[in-house]
Amino acid sequence: MFVRLQLAEKITMNLLLLIMASIWVIPLVYLVMYSLEGGNWANYEAVLSLDLFPRFLLNSFIVSTSVVLLLLMAVSLAAFGFSKLKFPGDSSVFAICLIGLMIPPVAMLVPLFQTIKAFHWMNTYLSLIGPEVAMSIPFSLLIARNSFDEIPNELLEAAEIDGSNAWGRFVHVILPLAVPVLTTIGILAFLNSWNQYLFPLVFINKETMLTVTMAPKFFIKEYTSDYHKVFAALVLITIPIVILYIFGQKYMQRGLTSGAIK
Rank of each mutant, 00 (worst) to 15 (best):
F199H: 02
S92L: 13
L77A: 12
Q196F: 00
A8L: 07
L128N: 06
Y44K: 05
E37K: 12
S35T: 01
L126D: 01
R254Q: 15
I143E: 05
S91T: 14
K206W: 01
H228D: 04
R254P: 04
A233Y: 05
S258M: 13
L156A: 00
Y197R: 12
G81S: 14
P104E: 03
A21V: 06
I261Q: 09
P111E: 03
L98W: 01
M102T: 10
P104K: 02
A107N: 00
F219P: 00
Y251N: 02
L126S: 05
V173E: 12
N146E: 01
L72E: 12
G259L: 03
S66G: 15
V242L: 14
T211K: 09
M252H: 05
V181C: 04
D149V: 02
K117V: 04
L128Q: 08
M252I: 15
F56W: 09
E9T: 15
S91G: 11
F139G: 03
V181G: 06
D90C: 13
S140W: 02
I161M: 15
L112D: 00
D149L: 14
N192A: 13
G168Y: 10
A189N: 10
S35A: 12
E222V: 00
L16Y: 14
G38L: 08
W24P: 00
P176Y: 13
G248F: 12
L128I: 10
I241W: 05
L72V: 13
L128T: 10
F80R: 00
M214Q: 11
R254S: 15
D149C: 03
F219D: 01
L98E: 02
W41Y: 04
R254A: 15
E222T: 02
M135G: 01
V242N: 05
P152Y: 05
Y125C: 04
W24Y: 07
I151H: 00
P104H: 11
Y44V: 08
I129H: 06
A21Y: 06
K262I: 07
M102R: 07
V32L: 13
K84I: 04
A79F: 00
I241T: 15
S136P: 02
G163Y: 06
L48K: 08
L70C: 12
L177W: 03
I187K: 09
P152A: 06
E132W: 06
L69M: 09
L17E: 01
I151L: 13
V133E: 06
I11M: 12
N123V: 12
V3A: 13
I174N: 07
L244P: 03
L201N: 02
F80G: 00
S164A: 14
E222Q: 07
M214V: 10
L72G: 09
L256K: 03
L175H: 07
Q6E: 12
K10T: 08
V171I: 13
L28N: 02
F56L: 15
Q253T: 11
I185H: 10
V173W: 02
G38R: 10
R4T: 09
L15V: 13
H120T: 07
D51Q: 11
T184P: 04
